[in-house]
Computed example of a mutant assay.
Amino acid sequence: MEPHISIVTLGVTDLERSVRFYHEGLGLPMQSRAPDSDVAFFDLAGAWLSLYPRDLLAEDATVDPDGSGFAGVTVAHNVASPEAVDDVLAEAAAAGGDVVKLGQEVFWGGYSGYFADPDGHLWEVAWNPEFDLD
């Protein structure tokens, strides 16, 4: 397998609320979509984020849609400075997200925090001094 992630799909309970959170609140660039479409795609410069109704996603994967709690998965967004971590966390909170861990120095030498989107999907926002983001 070639090591490449092309799309991350989040199963959401209210597609329009999630579109507002990611597009209007966080400013992610969204592909145009028909008003009655049941999917939304965001171009993340090298990968795509997709939002799809949780029940339909579970049906497609042939699994039970009633899973809850921590699913053992987070999505990470790396930024260029510790200040940018705090800025993104504040932006997520203003958009309706829930900051679950304030930005702080972490054991691996960087600075990070977490927010949850309206469906509870966890996003880590991190500055890693070892990553060159250019």
Rank of each mutant, 00 (worst) to 15 (best):
S68Q: 13
L15I: 07
L28S: 05
A61M: 15
W123D: 00
D43A: 13
V12R: 06
S6I: 12
F107V: 14
V99G: 05
R20L: 09
E24Q: 10
D66V: 14
A126Q: 11
N128Q: 02
W108D: 08
P35D: 09
V106D: 11
L10N: 07
N78C: 10
D43L: 12
D117R: 01
Q104W: 09
Q31Y: 13
F131M: 10
W108L: 08
E124V: 07
G96I: 00
T74M: 13
G67W: 15
H121P: 12
G72F: 10
H4G: 11
H23K: 06
R33V: 06
V125G: 08
A45G: 12
G27Y: 06
Y52R: 14
P29I: 05
G96C: 02
A45Y: 11
S18M: 04
I5K: 07
Y114C: 06
D117P: 01
S112Q: 10
D98F: 13
H4K: 15
V88T: 07
D119A: 06
A34C: 05
V88Q: 04
L57E: 07
V100N: 08
D38S: 10
D36G: 08
S68P: 04
V100G: 07
L15D: 02
D66G: 15
A84K: 11
I5C: 12
L57I: 14
N78P: 03
N128H: 06
Q31N: 10
V19G: 04
Y52C: 05
W127P: 04
S68K: 12
R17V: 12
G27I: 07
V79S: 09
L28P: 06
Y114I: 09
R17W: 11
V85S: 02
M30C: 02
S81C: 04
V63T: 10
T13E: 07
Q104S: 14
E16V: 11
P129Q: 05
K101T: 14
M30K: 10
V99S: 04
G67H: 14
H121D: 08
V75E: 06
L28N: 05
E59S: 15
S68I: 10
L51Y: 04
P3H: 14
A40N: 01
F21Q: 01
D60P: 05
W123N: 00
R20G: 07
G113D: 00
D43P: 08
A34H: 11
G25E: 03
G69E: 02
Y22G: 01
L89V: 00
W123G: 01
E124K: 11
H23F: 03
G25C: 02
Y114R: 08
D119R: 00
G110P: 04
H23Q: 09
V63W: 07
G27W: 04
L10W: 09
P82A: 03
V79K: 08
Y22P: 02
D132I: 12
A92V: 02
H23V: 01
P3R: 15
H4D: 10
V88D: 00
A58T: 13
P82Q: 01
V100W: 03
T62R: 15
S81G: 00
L133M: 02
L49E: 02
A126L: 13
G67K: 15
E91F: 03
S68C: 11
A84Q: 09
L49W: 04
A95I: 00
V79I: 08
G110C: 08
A40V: 00
T74Y: 06
A71V: 14
F131Y: 12
K101M: 15
T9K: 15
H4V: 15
A126P: 07
G110W: 02
D64H: 15
A92H: 01
D86E: 03
W108Q: 08
E2I: 15
D60K: 08
I7N: 10
